[in-house]
Lab assay of single mutants.
Amino acid sequence: NLRWTSEAKTKLKNIPFFARSQAKARIEQLARQAEQDIVTPELVEQARLEFG
């Protein structure tokens, strides 16, 4: 299971509600691909840039 830093959680809250669950799934996918067990603000930002 993935842990989220408080900064990453804050960044996730800045994503519009309607896109948040999809973004969260993508962020967690990116973390797993990078073999990380902690979601960082950088991963959230990477996903945000993908979504535009």
Rank of each mutant, 00 (worst) to 15 (best):
A19L: 15
K24M: 11
E7M: 07
I27M: 02
V44A: 02
Q22F: 12
F17N: 09
K24L: 11
E50C: 09
R3G: 04
F17R: 14
E28V: 06
E7F: 04
S21T: 10
A23D: 01
K24G: 02
N14W: 08
E42G: 05
E42A: 08
R3V: 13
R26K: 07
L30S: 02
D37K: 11
D37W: 14
Q36I: 14
G52N: 14
A47M: 07
F17C: 12
I15V: 06
E35H: 15
Q46P: 01
A8D: 00
L12Q: 01
L2D: 01
Q33K: 10
N1G: 13
E35A: 12
A31R: 01
A25E: 10
R20Y: 04
Q33M: 13
N14R: 12
L49I: 11
T10R: 15
P16A: 05
T10Y: 10
E42Y: 06
S6A: 13
P16R: 04
L2T: 03
G52M: 15
T5D: 04
F18E: 09
W4K: 00
R3C: 09
R3T: 13
E45A: 08
A31M: 03
K11I: 13
A23M: 15
S21K: 14
L2V: 07
R26S: 04
Q36L: 14
R48F: 15
E42S: 06
N14F: 09
Q29C: 07
Q36N: 06
E45Y: 06
L12V: 03
R48S: 10
K9V: 14
I27P: 00
F17L: 13
F18Y: 14
F17Y: 11
A31G: 02
E28W: 02
V44T: 01
Q46F: 09
N14V: 06
A25W: 09
E50I: 12
R32Y: 07
A47T: 05
I38Q: 06
E7A: 12
R32H: 07
Q22N: 08
L2C: 03
A19D: 10
F17D: 08
L43Y: 05
P41D: 06
Q36P: 01
F51N: 05
Q29A: 12
D37C: 08
Q29H: 08
A23I: 15
K13A: 12
R20I: 04
R48G: 08
T40E: 03
Q33S: 09
A34S: 11
E50R: 07
E35W: 08
R48W: 15
W4D: 00
T40V: 03
N1R: 13
E45L: 07
R32L: 10
E28Q: 04
Q29W: 10
P16H: 06
L43G: 01
N14A: 11
K24T: 05
E35T: 06
K11R: 12
A8R: 00
T10L: 15
E42R: 05
K11T: 07
Q22A: 13
D37F: 14
S6F: 11
G52A: 14
R26D: 04
R48Q: 11
K9M: 14
A19T: 08
R3F: 14
V39N: 00
K9L: 15
Q22L: 14
A47K: 01
Q29F: 13
I15N: 02
P16K: 04
E45I: 06
T10S: 13
L12M: 08
Q29D: 08
R48L: 15
Q29M: 11
A25H: 09
S21D: 10
I38G: 02
E35V: 06
F17A: 14
F51E: 04
Q36E: 06
T5P: 02
V44W: 03
N1F: 13
R26Y: 14
N14M: 14
E45G: 03
E28K: 03
I15G: 02
E50Q: 10
N14I: 08
P16I: 04
T10G: 07
K9D: 05
K13D: 11
I15L: 08
S21N: 10
A34R: 14
A19E: 10
Q46L: 13
K11H: 10
S21H: 11
R20P: 02
E28M: 05
L12W: 08
Q33H: 08
A23E: 03
L12G: 01
S6G: 06
A25C: 09
T40H: 03
P16C: 09
L49A: 10
T5N: 04
P41M: 08
N1P: 15
V44H: 00
P16E: 04
R26A: 06
G52W: 14
T5Y: 02
R32I: 10
G52V: 15
N14C: 14
E7Y: 04
F18P: 13
E28C: 03
E35M: 15
R20D: 02
K13F: 12
I38N: 04
V44K: 00
R3M: 10
P41S: 11
A25I: 12
T40G: 05
V39W: 00
S6P: 13
L43D: 02
A34E: 07
K9N: 06
S21P: 09
E35G: 15
V39S: 00
N14G: 09
F17K: 14
F51T: 05
E7P: 04
R20L: 05
I27S: 10
R48K: 09
N1Y: 12
L43I: 09
I27T: 06
T10F: 11
Q29I: 08
E50L: 12
Q33G: 06
A23S: 04
R32F: 07
Q29V: 08
L30W: 09
A34Q: 13
E28G: 02
L30C: 03
P16D: 04
Q46T: 07
L30N: 02
F51R: 05
Q33P: 01
E42W: 07
S6C: 09
A25V: 10
L43P: 00
V39M: 01
L2N: 01
P41A: 15
F51K: 05
Q29G: 06
E28A: 04
A47L: 08
L30H: 03
L49G: 06
T40N: 03
V44N: 01
V39D: 01
K9Y: 13
E45Q: 07
R20N: 02
G52L: 15
R32S: 05
W4S: 00
A19S: 10
T10I: 15
Q29L: 10
P41N: 05
W4M: 00
K13T: 07
A47N: 03
A25D: 07
K9A: 10
K13H: 11
T40D: 02
K11Q: 11
T40A: 02
S21V: 11
D37T: 14
A47Y: 15
F18N: 07
A47D: 05
F18L: 08
I15A: 03
R32Q: 06
P16Y: 06
F17G: 10
A34Y: 14
G52S: 14
I38C: 07
L49P: 04
S6E: 14
I38R: 05
N1Q: 14
E45V: 06
W4N: 00
P16N: 05
E7V: 06
T10N: 13
E7I: 06
L49W: 09
I27W: 02
F51P: 03
R3L: 11
P41T: 09
Q29R: 09
K11P: 00
E35D: 12
K24I: 15
V44R: 00
K11L: 15
I15E: 02
A31H: 00
S6R: 14
K13E: 12
A19M: 15
I27K: 00
A47S: 05
A34G: 07
Q22I: 12
I27F: 01
P41E: 12
Q46R: 12
R32A: 05
A31T: 06
